[in-house]
Simulated scan of single mutants.
Amino acid sequence: MDEDEKEMLFEAHARLANNRDKKPPPGFYDVADEDRPIELNKFPTTIEELEGERRRRVDKEARLRKQDAARNKIAQMQDAPSAILQANKLNDPETVKKRSKLNLPARLIPDHELEAIAKIGIASDLMEE
């Protein structure tokens, strides 16, 4: 018998042994802990459960946003003069940078050479047709 046939016979023998409630033969590994129930993660199974989680998250985020806004407001009230100076700096038209002129490098090919290249291209197009 070849290896595949031996493996099929071994699997069939194991299945028959399991059907007759016979214990598996002792092996290399301890299987005593395999009878304990497996702890599964509980995922929301209904739309209501899912919506409840979403609402809790949205409520928490809204609460945190309100806290941040209150903290920012308190910080601005405590440091009002520097906040006003900073706002004035941002709104000052002199501090806004204007774009400089675009400076391109000098051309490497003079006009008469560009015209010659264009003529050559037009002539080659006419010859192809």
Rank of each mutant, 00 (worst) to 15 (best):
E5W: 06
K6A: 13
K6L: 15
H13Q: 06
H13M: 09
H13N: 04
A17Y: 02
N19Y: 10
R20M: 10
D21M: 05
K23Q: 15
P24Q: 08
F28K: 15
V31L: 10
V31H: 13
D33A: 10
D33W: 06
E34V: 07
E34T: 07
E34G: 00
E39Y: 04
F43V: 14
T46P: 01
T46I: 04
I47T: 15
E51N: 05
G52F: 02
E53V: 03
E53W: 02
R54C: 02
R56Y: 02
R57D: 08
R57E: 10
R57F: 06
V58R: 09
V58L: 11
A62F: 03
A62W: 00
D68K: 14
A70G: 04
N72M: 09
N72C: 01
K73H: 11
I74T: 15
A75M: 06
M77R: 11
Q78K: 15
A80G: 09
A80M: 14
L85C: 12
A87K: 13
N91H: 04
D92P: 09
P93A: 05
E94V: 06
E94G: 13
T95R: 15
V96C: 02
V96M: 11
P105M: 01
R107Q: 12
L108Q: 12
L108N: 13
P110D: 05
P110F: 01
E115T: 11
E115R: 14
A116K: 06
I117H: 00
I117M: 09
A118M: 03
A118L: 02
I120A: 08
G121N: 11
G121Y: 00
G121R: 07
G121F: 01
I122W: 00
S124V: 04
D125N: 06
E128I: 11
